[in-house]
Simulated scan of single mutants.
Amino acid sequence: MNNTGWGALQDDNAGNKTNFTKFNAGEITEIRCLTNEPTVRWSHFIPSAKRSVTCLGKGCPICDARELAKSQGVDPKFSTSKKFAMVIYNFKTEQVEILEQGKAFFEQLFSFHTEIGDIGTYNIKVKRIGEKTNTTYTLIPCAPTAFNKETGELPDLIKQFTPPTKEQMLALMEGQSPTDVFGNNKTEVSGEDEQFEV
Protein backbone atom coordinates (compact mmCIF):
# COMPACT_ATOMS: atom_id res chain seq x y z
CA MET A 1 0.00 0.00 0.00
CA ASN A 2 1.42 3.36 -1.02
CA ASN A 3 -0.23 6.12 1.01
CA THR A 4 2.10 8.97 0.08
CA GLY A 5 2.12 11.26 -2.95
CA TRP A 6 0.19 10.09 -6.00
CA GLY A 7 -0.12 6.60 -4.52
CA ALA A 8 -2.63 7.88 -1.97
CA LEU A 9 -5.13 8.45 -4.79
CA GLN A 10 -5.34 4.71 -5.32
CA ASP A 11 -6.49 3.96 -1.79
CA ASP A 12 -9.36 5.98 -0.35
CA ASN A 13 -8.88 4.21 3.00
CA ALA A 14 -5.12 4.74 3.22
CA GLY A 15 -4.02 3.94 6.74
CA ASN A 16 -7.45 2.47 7.61
CA LYS A 17 -7.63 -0.64 5.48
CA THR A 18 -6.49 -4.09 6.54
CA ASN A 19 -5.54 -6.34 3.64
CA PHE A 20 -6.51 -9.98 3.30
CA THR A 21 -3.70 -12.49 2.88
CA LYS A 22 -3.23 -13.81 -0.65
CA PHE A 23 -1.01 -16.82 -1.32
CA ASN A 24 0.48 -17.19 -4.81
CA ALA A 25 0.52 -20.66 -6.36
CA GLY A 26 3.91 -22.37 -6.10
CA GLU A 27 5.32 -19.81 -3.67
CA ILE A 28 6.13 -20.14 0.03
CA THR A 29 4.89 -17.36 2.30
CA GLU A 30 6.02 -17.11 5.92
CA ILE A 31 3.48 -15.84 8.45
CA ARG A 32 3.13 -15.33 12.22
CA CYS A 33 -0.28 -15.69 13.88
CA LEU A 34 -1.04 -12.63 16.01
CA THR A 35 -4.32 -13.92 17.45
CA ASN A 36 -4.63 -17.29 19.19
CA GLU A 37 -8.10 -18.37 18.07
CA PRO A 38 -10.01 -17.95 14.83
CA THR A 39 -13.17 -15.96 14.30
CA VAL A 40 -15.75 -18.25 12.66
CA ARG A 41 -18.64 -17.19 10.42
CA TRP A 42 -20.95 -18.37 7.67
CA SER A 43 -20.64 -16.29 4.52
CA HIS A 44 -22.44 -15.98 1.20
CA PHE A 45 -20.76 -15.18 -2.09
CA ILE A 46 -22.65 -12.70 -4.30
CA PRO A 47 -21.37 -13.18 -7.88
CA SER A 48 -22.53 -9.81 -9.24
CA ALA A 49 -20.75 -8.01 -6.37
CA LYS A 50 -17.69 -10.33 -6.51
CA ARG A 51 -17.78 -10.29 -2.74
CA SER A 52 -18.68 -12.44 0.21
CA VAL A 53 -20.81 -11.13 3.05
CA THR A 54 -21.50 -12.52 6.49
CA CYS A 55 -24.80 -14.40 6.80
CA LEU A 56 -27.50 -12.56 8.75
CA GLY A 57 -28.72 -15.78 10.33
CA LYS A 58 -32.49 -15.90 10.92
CA GLY A 59 -34.28 -13.92 8.21
CA CYS A 60 -31.27 -13.84 5.87
CA PRO A 61 -32.56 -13.10 2.33
CA ILE A 62 -29.78 -15.14 0.72
CA CYS A 63 -30.61 -18.19 2.84
CA ASP A 64 -34.27 -17.73 1.85
CA ALA A 65 -33.33 -17.46 -1.86
CA ARG A 66 -31.19 -20.59 -1.60
CA GLU A 67 -34.01 -22.56 0.03
CA LEU A 68 -36.49 -21.40 -2.63
CA ALA A 69 -34.11 -22.40 -5.45
CA LYS A 70 -33.53 -25.84 -3.91
CA SER A 71 -37.29 -26.41 -3.44
CA GLN A 72 -37.76 -25.65 -7.16
CA GLY A 73 -34.95 -28.01 -8.18
CA VAL A 74 -32.73 -25.13 -9.36
CA ASP A 75 -29.07 -24.58 -8.48
CA PRO A 76 -28.86 -21.72 -5.98
CA LYS A 77 -27.42 -18.50 -7.41
CA PHE A 78 -25.57 -17.71 -4.18
CA SER A 79 -23.02 -19.95 -2.45
CA THR A 80 -22.45 -20.53 1.24
CA SER A 81 -19.26 -21.40 3.11
CA LYS A 82 -17.97 -21.63 6.65
CA LYS A 83 -15.00 -19.30 7.07
CA PHE A 84 -12.27 -19.05 9.69
CA ALA A 85 -10.14 -15.93 10.13
CA MET A 86 -7.14 -14.82 12.20
CA VAL A 87 -4.91 -11.77 12.24
CA ILE A 88 -1.39 -12.57 11.00
CA TYR A 89 1.85 -10.84 10.10
CA ASN A 90 2.93 -11.60 6.51
CA PHE A 91 6.72 -11.48 6.16
CA LYS A 92 6.46 -11.26 2.37
CA THR A 93 4.32 -8.10 2.36
CA GLU A 94 5.72 -6.91 5.71
CA GLN A 95 2.28 -6.02 7.05
CA VAL A 96 -0.51 -7.11 9.35
CA GLU A 97 -3.24 -8.90 7.39
CA ILE A 98 -6.42 -10.90 7.85
CA LEU A 99 -5.95 -14.56 7.00
CA GLU A 100 -9.29 -16.08 6.01
CA GLN A 101 -9.51 -19.68 4.84
CA GLY A 102 -11.68 -22.77 5.09
CA LYS A 103 -11.76 -25.64 7.54
CA ALA A 104 -8.94 -27.75 6.04
CA PHE A 105 -6.41 -24.90 6.32
CA PHE A 106 -7.36 -24.14 9.91
CA GLU A 107 -7.33 -27.83 10.89
CA GLN A 108 -3.61 -27.78 10.07
CA LEU A 109 -3.12 -24.68 12.24
CA PHE A 110 -5.09 -26.30 15.07
CA SER A 111 -2.94 -29.45 14.94
CA PHE A 112 0.19 -27.28 15.34
CA HIS A 113 -1.46 -25.39 18.19
CA THR A 114 -2.34 -28.58 20.08
CA GLU A 115 0.68 -30.74 19.24
CA ILE A 116 3.54 -28.21 19.11
CA GLY A 117 2.26 -25.32 21.25
CA ASP A 118 0.89 -21.79 20.98
CA ILE A 119 0.95 -20.86 17.27
CA GLY A 120 1.82 -17.30 18.20
CA THR A 121 5.32 -18.36 19.30
CA TYR A 122 6.69 -19.51 15.94
CA ASN A 123 6.44 -18.68 12.25
CA ILE A 124 4.60 -20.91 9.78
CA LYS A 125 5.55 -21.40 6.13
CA VAL A 126 2.59 -21.75 3.77
CA LYS A 127 2.89 -23.21 0.27
CA ARG A 128 -0.06 -22.95 -2.07
CA ILE A 129 -0.52 -25.57 -4.78
CA GLY A 130 -3.10 -25.10 -7.54
CA GLU A 131 -5.52 -22.38 -8.57
CA LYS A 132 -9.06 -21.26 -7.72
CA THR A 133 -11.17 -24.14 -6.33
CA ASN A 134 -8.45 -26.70 -7.14
CA THR A 135 -6.15 -25.42 -4.39
CA THR A 136 -4.37 -27.11 -1.51
CA TYR A 137 -2.05 -25.69 1.13
CA THR A 138 0.95 -27.24 2.84
CA LEU A 139 1.82 -25.67 6.21
CA ILE A 140 5.22 -26.12 7.85
CA PRO A 141 5.91 -24.87 11.41
CA CYS A 142 9.28 -23.21 12.08
CA ALA A 143 11.33 -23.29 15.28
CA PRO A 144 10.08 -20.94 18.03
CA THR A 145 11.52 -17.42 17.74
CA ALA A 146 10.88 -14.02 19.25
CA PHE A 147 8.62 -11.77 17.21
CA ASN A 148 9.91 -8.21 16.99
CA LYS A 149 7.91 -6.57 14.19
CA GLU A 150 5.84 -3.45 14.86
CA THR A 151 2.16 -4.30 14.37
CA GLY A 152 0.25 -1.34 15.78
CA GLU A 153 -3.35 -1.93 16.83
CA LEU A 154 -4.67 -5.22 15.50
CA PRO A 155 -7.89 -5.24 13.45
CA ASP A 156 -11.09 -6.25 15.24
CA LEU A 157 -12.39 -9.28 13.34
CA ILE A 158 -15.83 -9.09 14.93
CA LYS A 159 -16.28 -5.56 13.53
CA GLN A 160 -14.62 -6.53 10.24
CA PHE A 161 -17.17 -9.28 9.62
CA THR A 162 -20.27 -7.50 10.90
CA PRO A 163 -23.16 -8.66 8.71
CA PRO A 164 -24.69 -6.10 6.37
CA THR A 165 -28.24 -4.99 7.06
CA LYS A 166 -31.06 -6.85 5.33
CA GLU A 167 -31.55 -3.81 3.06
CA GLN A 168 -27.86 -3.77 2.10
CA MET A 169 -27.91 -7.49 1.35
CA LEU A 170 -31.03 -7.13 -0.83
CA ALA A 171 -29.38 -4.25 -2.71
CA LEU A 172 -26.31 -6.42 -3.41
CA MET A 173 -28.53 -9.31 -4.51
CA GLU A 174 -30.26 -6.94 -6.95
CA GLY A 175 -26.90 -6.07 -8.54
CA GLN A 176 -25.97 -2.78 -6.88
CA SER A 177 -22.21 -2.28 -6.50
CA PRO A 178 -20.57 -2.73 -3.07
CA THR A 179 -19.30 0.87 -3.26
CA ASP A 180 -22.86 2.16 -3.71
CA VAL A 181 -24.16 -0.06 -0.92
CA PHE A 182 -21.37 0.30 1.65
CA GLY A 183 -19.46 3.42 0.58
CA ASN A 184 -15.76 3.04 1.40
CA ASN A 185 -16.30 1.66 4.90
CA LYS A 186 -16.56 -2.05 4.14
CA THR A 187 -13.25 -3.84 3.49
CA GLU A 188 -14.51 -7.41 3.50
CA VAL A 189 -13.64 -9.11 0.21
CA SER A 190 -13.72 -12.61 -1.16
CA GLY A 191 -10.79 -14.76 -2.11
CA GLU A 192 -10.48 -16.11 -5.63
CA ASP A 193 -10.09 -19.68 -4.37
CA GLU A 194 -13.01 -19.79 -1.95
CA GLN A 195 -14.54 -23.19 -1.26
CA PHE A 196 -18.31 -23.11 -1.04
CA GLU A 197 -21.06 -25.45 -0.06
CA VAL A 198 -23.86 -25.48 -2.60
Score class of each variant (00 low, 15 high):
1 M>Q: 11
4 T>Q: 15
5 G>C: 08
5 G>W: 05
6 W>H: 11
7 G>F: 05
9 L>G: 10
9 L>H: 14
10 Q>M: 08
11 D>Q: 06
12 D>R: 08
12 D>Q: 12
14 A>K: 15
16 N>Q: 12
18 T>E: 07
19 N>E: 12
19 N>G: 05
19 N>H: 13
21 T>P: 01
22 K>G: 00
23 F>H: 07
25 A>P: 03
25 A>V: 03
26 G>R: 06
27 E>P: 12
27 E>V: 12
27 E>D: 08
28 I>T: 10
29 T>G: 01
33 C>W: 03
36 N>R: 06
36 N>W: 02
40 V>F: 10
42 W>Q: 05
43 S>W: 03
45 F>S: 02
45 F>V: 02
47 P>K: 13
52 S>M: 13
52 S>A: 12
52 S>E: 13
53 V>C: 12
53 V>I: 14
60 C>G: 14
61 P>S: 09
62 I>T: 08
62 I>G: 03
63 C>E: 15
63 C>W: 04
64 D>W: 09
65 A>W: 04
67 E>L: 09
67 E>R: 15
68 L>H: 15
68 L>W: 13
69 A>D: 15
69 A>F: 10
70 K>N: 12
70 K>R: 15
71 S>E: 11
71 S>G: 14
74 V>Q: 15
75 D>A: 14
77 K>G: 02
77 K>I: 07
77 K>Y: 07
78 F>H: 10
79 S>N: 08
81 S>F: 10
82 K>T: 10
82 K>E: 15
83 K>F: 12
85 A>I: 01
86 M>T: 11
87 V>I: 13
89 Y>Q: 01
89 Y>K: 06
91 F>Y: 14
91 F>C: 09
92 K>T: 15
93 T>C: 04
93 T>E: 14
96 V>P: 05
99 L>T: 00
102 G>N: 03
104 A>E: 06
107 E>Y: 09
107 E>V: 10
109 L>C: 09
110 F>A: 14
114 T>E: 10
117 G>C: 11
119 I>C: 10
119 I>P: 00
119 I>Q: 00
120 G>A: 13
121 T>N: 11
122 Y>H: 12
124 I>M: 11
126 V>N: 00
127 K>P: 03
127 K>L: 06
128 R>G: 04
128 R>D: 07
129 I>W: 00
132 K>H: 00
133 T>Q: 05
134 N>Q: 09
135 T>P: 03
135 T>R: 04
135 T>N: 00
136 T>K: 13
138 T>P: 06
140 I>G: 05
141 P>M: 05
141 P>S: 15
142 C>N: 11
142 C>Y: 08
145 T>Y: 14
149 K>Y: 09
149 K>M: 15
151 T>K: 10
152 G>H: 14
153 E>T: 11
153 E>G: 07
157 L>S: 15
158 I>T: 11
158 I>E: 05
159 K>Q: 12
161 F>M: 11
162 T>V: 07
162 T>R: 06
162 T>F: 02
165 T>I: 02
168 Q>H: 02
171 A>K: 04
173 M>T: 00
173 M>W: 06
174 E>L: 08
175 G>E: 11
175 G>Y: 02
176 Q>N: 08
178 P>K: 01
179 T>A: 05
181 V>N: 01
182 F>M: 01
184 N>G: 03
185 N>F: 01
186 K>Y: 03
188 E>C: 03
188 E>S: 02
192 E>P: 02
193 D>A: 00
194 E>N: 01
197 E>D: 07
